[in-house]
Amino acid sequence: MTTATLPGTLSLGLSRGATELREFFRQKENLIFTVSLPALLMLLLGTVYVKEPAAAQMFAASMIGAGIISTSFVGLGMSVVADREDGTLKRLRGTPMPFTSYFIGKIILVFVSSLVEAVLLMVVAVLRFDVELPSTAGKWLTFGWVFALGVISCSLIGVALSSIAKSTRSAAGVLNLPYIVLQFLSGVFIMQMALPESLRTVGSFFPLKWVCQGFRSVFALNDDYAVMEAAGSWELGKIALVLGAWTIVGLVLVSRTFKWSNTSR
């Protein structure tokens, strides 16, 4: 009989995070598709569409927003489906590791991969399109909380949706479809002003629009550009509210729907 106590949830979570990162960055497809694709898209689309500095600022902000949704919503959702498919989750279920530690590991993975992705995008934006980075501490603060809330809320929704997918192949569709559609409805590729009222309303129910709007408020050359938003202002309070609400919805969904394997129950 052992009398020693089991390791703590947080320290196991950190250890999971280190292992997750190690596995993630050893897979070339992750580096190419998840981390580099938004920067590549920025390079391509920006070269075609961006004609003036103000537009470059706005486009870079929106692409950073879309990029972190790609690493959190799509990337994390896919990684949970893969864990279910290859037996990682089943194995972990048979060990004394708490579910919370697994989740802490995933959050670490998603924060680091999102950060790498965002930095890469900013490097491209600065070098190729002469984008100016935010200059005040206040703007970086906004950047920080929009980034954190966006990553957390979209991670949770991605994990919740991953329960629907039976395999990594079907997960790619389940997760990419809403992501691609929302990019068009949320002001990433098309300015929200140019969208019909109905589509704009649909987009405003989902996190992507608010994340992108938050980043645009940070990267805009001055606050006059807020008139180009759907509401004519940055609506920072509302951004926090919507993303916070999605975080709670995501937590509830994950705790209710999470499956350890494709065949359990």
Binding site: E23, Q27, D86, G87, T88, K90, R91, G94
Partner: peptide, 9 residues
């Protein structure tokens, strides 16, 4: 486990 392929990396 019977058919796990985890920890591949």
């Amino acid at each position: 486990l019977q058919s796990a392929t985890d920890a591949a990396n």
